[in-house]
Design a protein around this nucleic acid. Structure first.
Lengths: 254, 254
DNA sequence: TATCATTTGTTCGTATGTATT
DNA sequence: AAATACATACGAACAAATGAT
């Protein structure tokens, strides 16, 4: 006896094919659950299971009272992390703010960000990167929400060892950029970075703060900056929704 | 009138708290749906909605006939793309195979891969990277499934312009590595790479081929290799499940 | 503005299928 | 073979958000 595929899998497959073929175009409204119920001759529950499956795949979005729609993909922003904090570029461009804002503005869009500064014990992975004792050490934390055209685009949290940045303007909750800004003016120059990128589903908190549609994974980009002696100066953790970002690197093959 | 949260949200929140606190440890079995039904005094349907919510967040896995379990995270493999195909490292290590296999083997694990070679019209994004006419041009495609200790770990598909690699050993379906291998022996030397990383939910096909648990997003890593004249020689698209990979880069701040 | 029809969201109950122990 | 536990599927009702009247 061949293991037969569940009805709602078959229905999902059928609808997915229509989406792939373009018979259902991005932004287009699907038939109502009632209509699908009669068309496939199944219960509404089964229709909802099929729609849920496609929603999990990131192909659909639904709205109470309106309907279900084929998900629209918008043009992702490209972040080139090979040059994002380079000193030469920074000087050449005379950037007042940070290079992220410059990249966005240069693209004809309007960036802005909200900043919150606090002093806290670092999470374990940050403490490890900064060679700090997670139980005892303190870090200055700058939590930013970055917006493009009023839409939240990314979370960017920076951690500095408290002992390093004590009595610097970094404690002030202004819109201060990192490399050419306060960190450098305090004599702390990052000469290299170590970046680690992981991929996971967002937390409930991240879903709310970034207004994420269902089934939108995030890339977590952790950048550790080191000075010329190899001492870690800063960890920046950027949370990038998968539907609105491309991470880019230029690499030499030497 | 305060908008009240649905029962199944509250139940999911309660269980999530237990997981976060460690009251429910990774790998541990949850109470059965029947037990949760009586404990929370809701229908089994509502319990399943709550469990589904946590499954979507990547916190649970369930298995028919066995139960639901707190998802276990295993140690992810770290891929350093800054050195993964560097020529100096390749020569220094006398790698016969590719550096990926070396990195895995050096970690005490057993790598192997399945390779399939074909000649096809390239997908649009690959054609664009290779400066090819998507409608007319042909590419030699090497599709690999990479395994670590018999478990599938990543998909790696390489595309070469057919005109470039005609009559080279690259057409043979052997386990050939890229930089020190066939490509270089054919006089095609990659001197720099342009990498683009995107994040999305896997397709049904990828879920099957990589045996992905529910709600496991993937990173899609697209590397384009150029020769010294700036001509693109190869596009490699690697599909990395989020639960078993860390992508790493070392960056200079000059 | 207020009401009503439409449409998805939430929740109940019940039964049967299928994989595991 | 039987018991257990999750998966699939039916039917029904009300809640909440939306859009049109």
């Amino acid at each position: 006896m061949a293991k037969q595929t569940p009805r709602y899998h078959a229905i999902a497959d059928d609808l997915r094919n229509q989406i792939d073929r373009g018979a259902l175009a991005p932004g287009q409204k699907l038939p109502t659950e009632e209509e699908l119920t009669t068309h496939y001759e199944v219960s509404r529950n089964t229709v909802r299971l099929a729609l849920g499956r496609l929603t999990e795949e990131g192909l659909l979005v639904s709205a109470q009272g309106r309907g279900s729609f084929v998900r629209e993909r918008f043009e992702p922003a490209v972040w080139n992390w090979s040059v994002l904090e380079s000193r030469s570029r920074h000087e050449a461009n005379h950037d007042a703010g940070d290079q992220w804002a410059s990249q966005i503005a240069g693209n004809g869009q309007t960036p802005h960000q909200e900043v919150k500064v606090s002093i806290r014990r670092p999470p374990a992975d940050v403490a490890r990167q900064l060679n700090l004792d997670a139980a005892a050490a303190l870090t200055v934390v700058r939590e930013r929400v970055r917006y493009v055209d009023r839409e939240p685009y990314a979370l960017a949290d920076s951690y500095f060892p408290e002992a390093l940045v004590r009595d610097t303007p970094l404690m002030l909750p202004e819109d201060v950029s990192a490399p050419g800004g306060v960190l450098a003016s305090a004599g702390l120059v990052q000469v290299r970075f170590s970046d680690e990128i992981t991929v996971r589903m967002p937390t409930r908190d991240e879903i709310e703060r970034l207004v994420l549609p269902a089934s939108t994974p995030v890339a977590v980009h952790m950048r550790t900056g080191y000075d010329k002696d190899g001492q870690p100066l800063r960890v920046m953790i950027t949370t990038l929704p998968g539907d609105r970002h491309v991470i880019r690197y230029d690499v030499s093959a030497d």
